[in-house]
Design a protein around this nucleic acid. Structure first.
Lengths: 159, 159
DNA sequence: TTGGGTGCAAAGTGTTTGCAATTGT
DNA sequence: ACAATTGCAAACACTTTGCACCCAA
């Protein structure tokens, strides 16, 4: 996990390359993403969190910034099928997406940080002449110790 | 691949269990899905195709039917991140979803019918105490022989 | 016959866009 | 200074819902 200033410098550098500016709004958004690396925040959630630090921000700015950060490969835009896009800061050392365990009972989401697909990607390249640049692997099911209750997000259940 | 009447009977049987009726609209929708098993149709696409055989159908009926068929596990509802849900008739012999190759150049989508994840699912169960009931595996990249042109759907490109 | 199903139009989502005002470099 | 960026509101695209009428069992 990088420290905040280093990350901001890195972001600023990438923005500059694209003739873009590091505004206060964008800075706050990056900070919020950094402070919530564990979650997969939706634009609306980012908006709420950012509003705490910068009340005048508009939702459109959040969408525009997240889209921009996605193009710069600073965040990954994901979609778990619940109708909202979710955004994650991209690790520098992990080119590939993490895998996910989605609990059908409580809707919770766990990340697996390892990359389990190296071999399969090789196989795809061999058998199908398809050069893989990214992948996505989600498992749906139930974790046996599912603690329904406070954390239960059944309403947000995927698919 | 089942014949049409057999599939309709099977659907009818499942509908009956849920106190639902096999209406003409529902029958036409199932026929359309059966005739386009290779594609991953969106609701709108199903609507267009159904309209050819049953011009008076309403879009809402298509959505309601696809949702119903999804609940009955007759179709799978998928989401490739392009903002539309897509629906596929579920194979009887393949419990799990197929895997997908999504070409970043032309947006085309190829299916891999094999299940490559048996071992990984076992590992998830062991290491995380998570019972997998379904999964999803998509690879993004480019196929070397990408024929841009007629088939190019870049506009619909995922993510 | 009657409860489930339908079409239509209106209402909901989540997201994008046009524009005048504002801001970072 | 001036292009990039912002907030707002309106526009969008996809999907869901309320309701009076309709039809399959």
């Amino acid at each position: 996990m990088m420290d905040i200033q280093a990350k901001l410098d890195q972001v600023n550098q990438q923005l500059t390359l694209k003739n873009c500016k590091l505004t206060r709004q964008r800075e706050v958004i990056v900070r919020v993403l950094l402070e919530n690396e564990r979650d997969h925040l939706s634009a609306e959630e980012v908006f709420m969190l950012v509003k705490g630090k910068f009340p005048d921000i508009g939702l459109a700015t959040v969408y525009r910034t997240l889209e921009l950060l996605n193009e710069l490969h600073i965040v990954v835009k994901m979609n778990f099928g619940d109708g909202v896009a979710r955004y994650d800061l991209r690790d520098d050392d992990h080119v590939h997406m993490h895998h996910h365990l989605i609990c059908a009972d409580c809707g919770s989401l766990k990340e697996i940080k390892e990359d389990w697909l190296g071999e399969l990607e090789h196989r795809v390249e061999q058998e199908f002449g398809f050069k893989v640049t990214d992948h996505r692997l989600d498992f749906t099911g139930t974790h046996l110790t599912c603690n329904l209750g406070d954390q239960c997000k059944k309403k947000n259940k995927v698919s």
